[in-house]
Design a protein around this nucleic acid. Structure first.
Lengths: 107, 107
DNA sequence: TCATAATATAAGAATATACTTATATCAACA
DNA sequence: TGTTGATATAAGTATATTCTTATATTATGA
Protein backbone atom coordinates (compact mmCIF):
# COMPACT_ATOMS: atom_id res chain seq x y z
CA UNK A 1 0.00 0.00 0.00
CA UNK A 2 1.42 3.33 -1.01
CA UNK A 3 2.22 6.05 1.50
CA UNK A 4 -0.09 8.59 -0.14
CA UNK A 5 -3.04 6.27 0.06
CA UNK A 6 -2.14 5.25 3.60
CA UNK A 7 -1.83 8.84 4.79
CA UNK A 8 -5.17 9.55 3.12
CA UNK A 9 -6.69 6.71 5.10
CA UNK A 10 -5.36 7.89 8.45
CA UNK A 11 -6.40 11.44 7.61
CA UNK A 12 -9.94 10.14 7.26
CA UNK A 13 -9.66 8.56 10.70
CA UNK A 14 -7.99 11.61 12.27
CA UNK A 15 -11.23 13.15 13.43
CA UNK A 16 -13.42 12.37 16.40
CA UNK A 17 -16.68 12.72 14.51
CA UNK A 18 -15.54 10.38 11.76
CA UNK A 19 -14.33 7.83 14.30
CA UNK A 20 -17.79 7.95 15.86
CA UNK A 21 -19.39 7.40 12.47
CA UNK A 22 -17.16 4.38 11.90
CA UNK A 23 -17.96 3.08 15.38
CA UNK A 24 -21.67 3.40 14.58
CA UNK A 25 -21.84 1.93 11.07
CA UNK A 26 -19.63 -0.90 12.27
CA UNK A 27 -22.71 -2.27 14.03
CA UNK A 28 -25.16 -1.84 11.16
CA UNK A 29 -25.71 0.33 8.13
CA UNK A 30 -27.20 3.71 8.93
CA UNK A 31 -28.57 6.50 6.79
CA UNK A 32 -27.48 10.12 6.98
CA UNK A 33 -30.47 11.35 8.93
CA UNK A 34 -29.94 8.67 11.57
CA UNK A 35 -26.33 9.75 12.01
CA UNK A 36 -27.50 13.36 12.20
CA UNK A 37 -29.91 12.36 14.94
CA UNK A 38 -27.38 10.35 16.96
CA UNK A 39 -24.45 12.72 16.64
CA UNK A 40 -26.51 15.90 17.04
CA UNK A 41 -24.77 17.60 14.14
CA UNK A 42 -26.07 19.33 11.04
CA UNK A 43 -26.85 17.30 7.94
CA UNK A 44 -24.27 18.98 5.67
CA UNK A 45 -21.56 18.42 8.25
CA UNK A 46 -22.33 14.70 8.52
CA UNK A 47 -22.59 14.48 4.75
CA UNK A 48 -19.16 16.01 4.30
CA UNK A 49 -17.61 13.66 6.84
CA UNK A 50 -19.19 10.71 5.05
CA UNK A 51 -17.72 11.87 1.78
CA UNK A 52 -14.23 11.82 3.29
CA UNK A 53 -14.76 8.35 4.70
CA UNK A 54 -16.04 7.19 1.33
CA UNK A 55 -13.10 8.72 -0.54
CA UNK A 56 -10.76 6.86 1.79
CA UNK A 57 -12.73 3.68 0.99
CA UNK A 58 -13.58 3.16 4.66
CA UNK A 59 -17.34 3.18 4.10
CA UNK A 60 -19.56 2.38 1.16
CA UNK A 61 -23.05 3.59 0.36
CA UNK A 62 -26.19 1.83 -0.71
CA UNK A 63 -29.13 3.79 -2.03
CA UNK A 64 -32.61 2.63 -1.12
CA UNK A 65 -35.33 4.92 -2.39
CA UNK A 66 -34.73 8.32 -0.83
CA UNK A 67 -32.29 7.07 1.77
CA UNK A 68 -28.60 6.42 1.40
CA UNK A 69 -27.28 3.86 3.82
CA UNK A 70 -23.65 3.83 4.82
CA UNK A 71 -21.70 0.85 6.09
CA UNK A 72 -18.13 -0.34 6.50
CA UNK A 73 -16.47 -1.05 3.16
CA UNK A 74 -15.56 -4.73 3.26
CA UNK A 75 -12.77 -4.19 0.74
CA UNK A 76 -10.79 -2.40 3.44
CA UNK A 77 -7.29 -3.64 4.19
CA UNK A 78 -7.25 -6.17 7.07
CA UNK A 79 -4.89 -4.11 9.24
CA UNK A 80 -7.25 -1.14 8.91
CA UNK A 81 -10.16 -3.31 9.96
CA UNK A 82 -8.22 -4.18 13.12
CA UNK A 83 -8.41 -0.51 14.03
CA UNK A 84 -12.18 -0.58 13.92
CA UNK A 85 -12.23 -3.24 16.63
CA UNK A 86 -10.51 -0.78 18.95
CA UNK A 87 -13.32 1.75 18.58
CA UNK A 88 -15.64 2.13 21.57
CA UNK A 89 -18.96 0.30 21.49
CA UNK A 90 -21.70 2.69 20.40
CA UNK A 91 -24.48 0.17 19.93
CA UNK A 92 -26.44 1.74 22.80
CA UNK A 93 -26.78 4.94 20.78
CA UNK A 94 -28.37 2.95 17.97
CA UNK A 95 -30.66 1.18 20.43
CA UNK A 96 -31.69 4.51 21.85
CA UNK A 97 -32.51 5.75 18.37
CA UNK A 98 -34.65 2.68 17.76
CA UNK A 99 -36.62 3.00 20.99
CA UNK A 100 -37.17 6.69 20.30
CA UNK A 101 -38.91 5.68 17.07
CA UNK A 102 -36.52 7.63 14.87
CA UNK A 103 -34.98 4.59 13.21
CA UNK A 104 -35.73 4.40 9.52
CA UNK A 105 -37.61 1.14 9.16
CA UNK A 106 -37.62 0.73 5.39
CA UNK A 107 -35.08 -1.09 3.31
CA UNK B 1 -8.97 3.74 24.52
CA UNK B 2 -10.74 7.05 24.37
CA UNK B 3 -11.81 8.64 21.11
CA UNK B 4 -9.82 11.83 21.74
CA UNK B 5 -6.62 9.91 22.27
CA UNK B 6 -7.36 7.67 19.30
CA UNK B 7 -8.04 10.61 16.98
CA UNK B 8 -4.81 12.18 18.24
CA UNK B 9 -2.97 9.03 17.30
CA UNK B 10 -4.38 8.86 13.77
CA UNK B 11 -3.76 12.59 13.36
CA UNK B 12 -0.10 11.87 14.04
CA UNK B 13 -0.14 9.22 11.33
CA UNK B 14 -2.10 11.36 8.87
CA UNK B 15 0.98 12.77 7.21
CA UNK B 16 3.31 11.28 4.63
CA UNK B 17 6.49 12.59 6.25
CA UNK B 18 5.54 11.19 9.66
CA UNK B 19 4.68 7.83 8.14
CA UNK B 20 8.13 7.80 6.56
CA UNK B 21 9.72 8.59 9.92
CA UNK B 22 7.80 5.71 11.51
CA UNK B 23 8.82 3.41 8.65
CA UNK B 24 12.45 4.40 9.24
CA UNK B 25 12.72 4.21 13.03
CA UNK B 26 10.83 0.91 12.89
CA UNK B 27 14.09 -0.61 11.63
CA UNK B 28 16.41 1.03 14.16
CA UNK B 29 16.67 4.12 16.27
CA UNK B 30 17.80 7.18 14.37
CA UNK B 31 18.80 10.66 15.44
CA UNK B 32 17.33 13.85 14.05
CA UNK B 33 20.23 14.69 11.75
CA UNK B 34 20.03 11.24 10.18
CA UNK B 35 16.34 11.70 9.46
CA UNK B 36 17.12 15.15 8.05
CA UNK B 37 19.67 13.56 5.73
CA UNK B 38 17.43 10.72 4.57
CA UNK B 39 14.25 12.72 4.13
CA UNK B 40 15.96 15.78 2.65
CA UNK B 41 13.99 18.16 4.84
CA UNK B 42 15.04 20.95 7.16
CA UNK B 43 15.96 20.18 10.77
CA UNK B 44 13.15 22.24 12.36
CA UNK B 45 10.58 20.56 10.14
CA UNK B 46 11.74 17.08 11.14
CA UNK B 47 11.95 18.16 14.76
CA UNK B 48 8.36 19.38 14.71
CA UNK B 49 7.14 16.15 13.15
CA UNK B 50 8.99 14.16 15.79
CA UNK B 51 7.32 16.19 18.49
CA UNK B 52 3.89 15.25 17.15
CA UNK B 53 4.82 11.59 16.98
CA UNK B 54 6.14 11.78 20.52
CA UNK B 55 3.02 13.51 21.82
CA UNK B 56 0.94 10.73 20.29
CA UNK B 57 3.24 8.24 22.07
CA UNK B 58 4.21 6.61 18.79
CA UNK B 59 7.93 7.23 19.24
CA UNK B 60 10.16 7.69 22.24
CA UNK B 61 13.48 9.47 22.56
CA UNK B 62 16.79 8.53 24.12
CA UNK B 63 19.44 11.15 24.66
CA UNK B 64 23.05 10.14 24.13
CA UNK B 65 25.48 13.03 24.53
CA UNK B 66 24.54 15.61 21.93
CA UNK B 67 22.30 13.31 19.93
CA UNK B 68 18.71 12.40 20.55
CA UNK B 69 17.74 9.03 19.14
CA UNK B 70 14.16 8.28 18.24
CA UNK B 71 12.59 4.85 18.09
CA UNK B 72 9.17 3.21 18.15
CA UNK B 73 7.51 3.48 21.54
CA UNK B 74 7.02 -0.09 22.71
CA UNK B 75 4.12 0.96 24.95
CA UNK B 76 2.04 1.49 21.82
CA UNK B 77 -1.31 -0.29 21.58
CA UNK B 78 -1.00 -3.63 19.73
CA UNK B 79 -3.52 -2.68 17.05
CA UNK B 80 -1.50 0.46 16.32
CA UNK B 81 1.65 -1.61 16.01
CA UNK B 82 -0.12 -3.68 13.35
CA UNK B 83 -0.31 -0.53 11.26
CA UNK B 84 3.45 -0.15 11.34
CA UNK B 85 3.83 -3.53 9.67
CA UNK B 86 1.91 -2.19 6.70
CA UNK B 87 4.42 0.60 6.14
CA UNK B 88 6.75 0.20 3.15
CA UNK B 89 10.25 -1.12 3.78
CA UNK B 90 12.69 1.78 3.97
CA UNK B 91 15.73 -0.12 5.21
CA UNK B 92 17.55 0.60 1.96
CA UNK B 93 17.50 4.31 2.78
CA UNK B 94 19.24 3.57 6.08
CA UNK B 95 21.76 1.32 4.32
CA UNK B 96 22.45 4.08 1.84
CA UNK B 97 23.06 6.50 4.69
CA UNK B 98 25.51 4.08 6.26
CA UNK B 99 27.50 3.50 3.09
CA UNK B 100 27.61 7.24 2.48
CA UNK B 101 29.40 7.57 5.82
CA UNK B 102 26.78 9.90 7.27
CA UNK B 103 25.55 7.44 9.89
CA UNK B 104 26.23 8.63 13.41
CA UNK B 105 28.48 5.95 14.83
CA UNK B 106 28.41 6.85 18.52
CA UNK B 107 26.05 5.48 21.09
C1' DT C 1 -46.11 18.05 -12.90
C1' DC C 2 -45.62 19.89 -8.14
C1' DA C 3 -44.42 19.49 -3.36
C1' DT C 4 -41.80 17.21 -0.04
C1' DA C 5 -38.08 14.46 2.22
C1' DA C 6 -33.32 12.96 2.13
C1' DT C 7 -28.98 13.99 0.70
C1' DA C 8 -25.18 16.47 -1.68
C1' DT C 9 -22.68 20.46 -3.00
C1' DA C 10 -21.07 25.36 -2.79
C1' DA C 11 -19.22 29.30 -0.59
C1' DG C 12 -17.56 31.75 3.29
C1' DA C 13 -15.47 32.21 8.00
C1' DA C 14 -12.77 30.40 11.78
C1' DT C 15 -9.32 27.35 13.09
C1' DA C 16 -5.54 24.06 12.47
C1' DT C 17 -1.51 22.43 10.05
C1' DA C 18 3.12 22.48 7.79
C1' DC C 19 6.78 24.79 6.19
C1' DT C 20 10.31 28.62 6.55
C1' DT C 21 13.69 31.60 8.92
C1' DA C 22 15.54 33.08 13.16
C1' DT C 23 16.80 32.11 17.75
C1' DA C 24 17.25 29.40 22.06
C1' DT C 25 18.85 25.30 24.62
C1' DC C 26 22.05 21.83 25.83
C1' DA C 27 26.05 18.87 25.80
C1' DA C 28 30.96 18.38 24.51
C1' DC C 29 35.36 20.02 24.40
C1' DA C 30 39.34 23.17 23.86
C1' DT D 1 34.52 30.14 29.97
C1' DG D 2 33.83 30.31 24.94
C1' DT D 3 32.85 27.81 20.79
C1' DT D 4 30.77 24.30 18.19
C1' DG D 5 27.35 20.72 16.89
C1' DA D 6 22.75 18.78 17.56
C1' DT D 7 18.28 19.73 18.62
C1' DA D 8 14.16 22.43 20.11
C1' DT D 9 11.22 26.35 20.05
C1' DA D 10 9.14 30.71 18.23
C1' DA D 11 6.93 33.49 14.87
C1' DG D 12 5.16 34.24 10.38
C1' DT D 13 2.97 32.71 6.11
C1' DA D 14 0.55 29.64 3.01
C1' DT D 15 -2.51 25.98 2.79
C1' DA D 16 -5.90 22.70 4.57
C1' DT D 17 -9.71 21.53 7.45
C1' DT D 18 -14.28 22.02 9.60
C1' DC D 19 -18.23 24.18 10.44
C1' DT D 20 -22.20 27.17 8.92
C1' DT D 21 -25.81 28.83 5.77
C1' DA D 22 -27.75 28.61 1.35
C1' DT D 23 -28.81 26.04 -2.61
C1' DA D 24 -28.90 21.99 -5.80
C1' DT D 25 -30.03 17.14 -6.68
C1' DT D 26 -32.74 13.01 -6.50
C1' DA D 27 -36.58 10.05 -5.45
C1' DT D 28 -41.38 9.69 -3.81
C1' DG D 29 -46.10 10.41 -3.96
C1' DA D 30 -50.24 13.42 -4.50
Amino acid sequence: MELDQLAECYKAMADKTRLKILALVKHEELCVCELVEILKMTQPSISQHLRKLKQAKLVKERRSSQWIFYSIDGEMYPFIKENLNALPDMSSDIEQLKTSGMKVCCT
